[in-house]
Simulated scan of single mutants.
Amino acid sequence: MTTNSIDSKRHRTSRLIEEWFLATGRDLPWRTALPHSTGCSPWGIMVSEFMLQQTPVSRVLPVWEIWMTRWPTPAALAAEPSSEAVRAWGRLGYPRRAQRLHAAAVAIVEQHDGEVPGTREELQALPGVGVYTSAAIAAFAFGRRESVVDTNIRRVHARLFSGKALPSPSFTAAEARLAEELLPEDRAESVTWNAAVMELGALVCTARSPKCQECPVATECAWLAAGSPEPEYVPKGQSWHGTDRQVRGAVMAVLREAGSPVPRELFLAPPADWETGTANLSWSGSEGALGRLDALHRLKAAPEQLERCLGGLLKDGLANESDAGLSL
């Protein structure tokens, strides 16, 4: 597709997508692209971008609200130890994001007088902020004209303009050029466009079961016009059961609930009479921590896997070990 034809098609489709978004877009507390939005601080948008990485909105929303009540500013989070950030991260997964967000808050306080910086370059210099996250914060928090390209946007672009069922397995230079060509010149419109296409991919143009009958630009879709061809590759789903990720998550759940260090041996093997609930423990953890410990042992992980996961958490700084045991 030539630049001129892309430009012509963009003008036809952008109006339809943006009208659909303004009429049906979810009223999320960190969203500022809708006219009825009450606004959100740049820090609130930054927190949402960290949390939304590989995590759906439904899981992020309640945790984000708790975080913003407890830590409404970077300074509030920076004043607490990073272990509190990891604890409050709950079950969002990938808890190193909590560590990095805490480190970013510290850097914002030390280097930017407690205010989230507004340029992509400044943002990308913060811990845990990559190319996508810096562009998203710059666009959605500061209204800058940035090409924001996540998985949802890539999929919409691939179907609508390239006629492919799915984008390439990894982000390509051609995709980056297409995204730049599609981005409206007007700053305010570019922010709305980014949010609108992202929403379309999240709610309608989904990976497995697209709701083409609900799509505002179905008549413009190159993929539908080509007869909805099958993907050129089979996406590899992320395994979970029995993996180190599952075991690490179970260990972290114990540590989040524990009010005191947990002896290492309790992670490695259930004590005698554990199944009957009559085990004689020298460690008196909370009822919640004991429940999480029981869930860990029900995974039946091999001792070498448990050792590997404990070692990984310690190496990553997500856990600390003393003579008394492990803690956040």
Rank of each mutant, 00 (worst) to 15 (best):
M1S: 05
T3Q: 15
N4T: 15
K9N: 11
R10K: 08
R12L: 14
S14Y: 13
R15V: 14
R15H: 15
L16F: 06
I17G: 01
L22V: 13
A23N: 11
L28G: 04
L28R: 07
P29F: 03
A33L: 07
A33P: 06
A33H: 10
L34F: 06
P35N: 08
H36E: 15
I45W: 10
M46V: 09
V47P: 05
V47L: 09
F50E: 04
Q53G: 08
T55I: 06
S58N: 12
V60Y: 04
P62S: 06
V63K: 10
E65K: 05
T69A: 12
W71G: 01
W71I: 00
A76T: 09
E80A: 14
P81T: 04
E84R: 15
V86H: 04
A88S: 12
R91C: 12
G93C: 02
R97L: 05
A104V: 01
A107K: 06
Q111L: 15
G114W: 08
G114Q: 08
P117G: 02
P117T: 03
Y132A: 03
T133F: 07
F140L: 03
F142N: 02
G143R: 01
R144A: 11
R144H: 11
R144Y: 13
R145V: 05
R145D: 02
E146Q: 08
E146Y: 07
S147I: 11
V148R: 02
N152H: 05
N152A: 07
R154F: 06
V156Q: 03
L160P: 11
F161R: 09
G163N: 10
A165E: 05
L166A: 06
L166D: 09
S168M: 13
F171A: 12
T172H: 07
A179L: 04
E180D: 12
E181R: 14
L183N: 07
R187N: 14
E189T: 10
V191I: 04
T192M: 12
T192H: 14
W193I: 03
A195Y: 09
M198F: 14
A207N: 09
R208K: 13
S209C: 14
E214Q: 11
V217P: 01
C221Y: 04
W223R: 00
L224A: 02
A225S: 11
A226T: 01
Y233E: 07
P235R: 01
K236C: 12
K236V: 13
Q238A: 14
Q238L: 15
H241T: 15
T243L: 07
R248P: 08
A250E: 07
V254M: 00
V254G: 02
L255R: 02
R256C: 02
A258D: 05
A258C: 01
V262P: 00
V262Q: 00
V262Y: 00
E265Q: 07
A272N: 09
A272Y: 07
D273P: 10
W274N: 01
T276M: 12
T278A: 15
S282L: 13
W283N: 01
S284Y: 15
G285D: 07
G285M: 05
G288N: 11
L290M: 11
G291F: 13
L293Q: 04
L293G: 01
D294Y: 08
D294V: 10
A295G: 07
R298E: 11
K300S: 13
K300H: 14
A302N: 08
C309A: 10
G311V: 06
K315V: 11
G317M: 06
G317W: 03
G317F: 02
A324S: 11
G325N: 02
L326F: 10
L328C: 01
